[in-house]
Amino acid sequence: MGVTQILFWFLSVMAVFSALMVITSKNPVYSVLWLIATFFAISGHYILFNAQFLAIVNIIVYAGAIMVLFLFVIMLMNLNRETEPQKNRWLKMAGAAAGGCLLLVLVAALKDTDMKQQQALINKGNIGLIKILGKELFTTYVVPFEISSVLFLSAMIGAVVIGKKE
């Protein structure tokens, strides 16, 4: 077991554990924090892949912006363990069972694929570096890139429309 393996398992366990904590924490603030931990674990995976750009964007966008907004909202709403609504137990179990089934089915379906022989390149390969991604983004993917600006614009207008007091 090399360093990479150790890191992989560490990050994986961290990701899954934090994700589980997200959905089991009673206190929404804890959920947010665990989710951030998950994001960091995933970023760690990206770094293992040498996808540095995505790793840092993941942190900036998700951990730095999105989750801050979540935290904002939750803190302002003052939701804590006492006021946090809970589904009844059976519904919860049903939901968990459904999710578990999905997991099982997907895993079972994908277990026997030829993917077993496929290796994901770790630590090597420079496609994750900003130079290559940037070039690709502004040549091949320039149309979707511009389109996403429209998306942002509409989201912006949306936030104004919804948020502005009348």
């Binding site: 979707p144 389109i147 998306l151």
Partner: peptide, 19 residues
């Protein structure tokens, strides 16, 4: 013709609709 465009398109439709 690309799933990326489909994804973006669906989202550009959806987000304003949510609003």
């Amino acid at each position: 013709k690309s799933l990326l465009i489909l994804f973006l398109g669906v989202e550009i439709i959806s987000i304003p609709l949510y609003i």
